[in-house]
Amino acid sequence: MEAQKVDMFMMANAKFFESHHLNSIRDRLIALDDAKWGQVQTLQFKDPTTSLIVSIIAGTLGIDRFMIGDTGLGIGKLLTCGGFYVWAIVDWFLIQGATREKNLEKLQTAIY
């Protein structure tokens, strides 16, 4: 893959990934086959800021976890009213990282 294209992609999507993953993502994309580029470019990532807002507003119902695809944890939060609110508050700080991890998983499944 052309480095210029990859750099454009990285610039546009850097906020969706953990900073310590960015270098390896870039290297992986440069080594990627051209045929997969279309697939990678059309991926839709979840915005960490959006999930933080959802977490603050509807965290007790587990909607933030449902949104990023952690259905099991979402049900856990829903059934316990956000883990007696403790888990809901802890998730305000974890949800952005969790969203970025999910985005990385999504990218990985598209690449491999």
């Binding site: 007790t60 119902l61 829903l78 059934l79 316990t80 009213c81 956000g82 007696f84 609110y85």
Partner: peptide, 18 residues
Amino acid sequence: GVCMFKHATGIPCPSCGA
């Protein structure tokens, strides 16, 4: 009394009463 949702909004949450 443990449900913060109920304290905050005045209406019970889906799992209140569990």
